[in-house]
Design a protein around this nucleic acid. Structure first.
Length: 513
DNA sequence: CTGGGGATGGGGCCC
DNA sequence: TGGGCCCCATCCCCA
């Protein structure tokens, strides 16, 4: 019996040893395969980066060709294949960008946009704007981007003249907000260099944070960019008082820090946080196809093309509209129209702003050449259309609208209104429904929504006793009884009670595409 | 199956 | 702040 027990003990120990060896072998195999797999992933990522660079190069060439074709004498394009050595005071790491000081709020001939890519091996491109009359050339938007080596999502930065301490190591500090940078220098219209910061905080909805960097608006500018105090954060610059390389420019300095990671161009949808959200931004949040401002400066990825005179802007939509989201179609149409008629400024819905923009026109004669830049935040052509149909950016109110949206420059009469409006761009939705996952930008919208849950329908049709939760729906419904069909199809004359019906009808029956 | 049309709900803005 | 208004997208029903 004792022998039997000992035998069993030996058997058990042998089985254990064998099983351990087996497990160890499996682990080894898994580790080996994992290493191979990781190696393959790394190689694939490298290939992706290489292809991406090639794609960018092609895009740049296309853009350059277009610019040269339209303005052979006014644009000088340089290719820079070497990384300029930077001094101690500059950012290190081989992937910084430098913004030349803006001396007099105007773009001078000798001012370069230098975009240095990290490896120093990929071609660099500088478009040097030559203006026959730089002082009158109007505002110029310069935008810089930096693409890092490890992860482009974390790699955008600006040359601020401060030590690189501000850079965050996102790989070692994942809790840190991901911060990417770009800069828009706006000179002319606001006499200001704008700096805003997109700071992907975990708090709330990745609200764009903005801060003003220690400069007051130029004396000539009576308009203020509203800085939402609720979303203001401390900038990561170690020395906030240290100005950006703007020299003694009395203008106001902002920088826009963008996360380029999860998007081609723009921000992630803010409703990523609430994945179930059926959000209208879902189709438009990546849409960069909104030219909020008139003008002749086109940002083409890493290239800034300034188009002078009344010549139409040319831009490379392919690099940004790969998915052709619905909201970007206007831009594609816009580009198409430009390509087919290179000398006519197409009456794009975006250009509608141009003619109805009291802000722009009130900026003084120096703004005769306005801006065209992509609102890289939640830019929606719907907004542009809204603005256009409401008569422009400041849409004709009698009140003075001194408080400008930092994203689209639309004017509002109070900072609170700007704050609410800016939620359009930031995606902030502070009001959440207690009955469902829906979130809203305004309290009134939430209240209205909650009737869905309560079933409250205070508006009843006097003709049919049908009840509605909203008055505008009742009003719409009453067209059924009145037979009112104010929207007529221009092609076939068919009339509809709602504009959206007409639109659908035209899309289905008279669409040219 | 398709298009028209009604209903519904969210977004945004003005007052 | 809330009401009103308009826009838009979507769902559903019906001819």
């Amino acid at each position: 019996m004792a022998n039997c027990m000992g035998f069993h003990t030996q058997i058990a120990s042998i089985v254990e040893v064998l099983s351990n060896a087996f497990v160890a072998e499996i682990c080894k195999l898994v580790d080996d395969d994992y290493a191979v797999f990781r190696l393959e992933i790394t190689q694939s990522q490298k290939e992706n980066r290489t292809l991406r660079r090639k794609l960018q190069l092609l895009e740049l060439k296309v853009a350059r060709d277009r610019v040269l074709a339209s303005h052979p004498s006014s644009v000088k394009i340089l290719d820079q294949y070497s990384v300029t050595a930077r001094g101690e005071g500059h950012l290190t790491g081989g992937n910084r960008s430098v913004v030349k000081p803006v001396g007099h709020n105007t773009w001078r001939d000798d001012q370069l946009i230098t975009v240095n890519e990290g490896s120093g091996t990929s071609p660099q491109h500088i478009i040097m704007i030559e203006s026959a009359d730089a002082e009158s050339a109007g505002p110029v938007v310069k935008q810089e981007r930096r693409r890092g080596e490890e992860d482009p999502r974390h790699s955008r930065d600006i040359e601020t003249g401060v030590p690189p301490v501000a850079m965050e190591d996102h790989t070692t500090a994942p809790a840190q907000p991901r911060t990417c940078h770009s800069i828009m220098e706006v000179s002319g219209m606001l006499n200001a260099v704008l700096k805003s910061e997109t700071d992907r905080e975990t708090v709330k909805q990745r609200i764009l944070h903005t801060e003003r960097l220690g400069c007051s608006p130029a004396p000539g500018s009576e308009y203020l960019l509203h800085d939402n105090p609720s979303s203001r954060t401390v900038h990561s610059h170690p020395n906030p008082s240290q100005p950006i390389e703007t020299g003694n420019d009395p203008s106001c300095s902002y920088a826009t820090e963008m996360d380029t990671g999860n998007m081609l161009f723009g921000l992630e949808t803010p409703t990523d946080l609430s994945k179930g959200d059926r959000n209208q931004y879902s189709g438009s949040v990546y849409s960069e196809g909104c030219l909020d401002k008139k003008g002749e400066v086109i940002v083409v990825d890493e290239v800034i093309v300034k188009v002078e005179g009344d010549a139409p802007p040319t831009w490379n939509a392919d690099s940004h509209l790969g998915d052709e989201h619905s909201q970007g179609r206007d831009f594609l149409n816009y580009r198409d129209s430009l390509e087919t008629n290179a000398n006519v400024v197409t009456p794009s819905p975006l250009h509608a702003l141009k003619d109805h923009d009291p802000v722009s026109t009130s900026m003084g004669p120096s703004d005769s050449h306005g801006h065209v830049f992509f609102d890289q935040v939640l830019n929606s052509n719907d907004m542009a259309r809204d603005q256009a149909r409401r008569g422009g950016v400041t849409s004709g109110g009698s009140k003075e609208k001194r408080f400008l949206c930092m994203f689209c420059n639309k004017g509002f009469s109070s900072p609170q209104k700007v704050e609410i409006h800016q939620r359009v761009h930031t995606g902030e939705k502070p009001y959440s429904c207690t009955h469902c996952h829906m979130r809203f930008t305004e309290a009134g919208t939430l209240k209205r929504h909650q009737r869905v849950h309560t079933g409250e329908k205070p508006y009843n049709c006097p003709q049919c006793e049908k009840r509605f939760s909203r008055q505008d729906h009742l009003k719409m419904h009453q067209k059924v009884h009145t037979g009112e069909r104010p929207f007529a199809c221009t092609q076939c004359g068919k009339r509809f009670s709602e504009r959206s019906y007409l639109k659908i009808h035209q899309q289905k029956n008279h669409s040219t595409r």
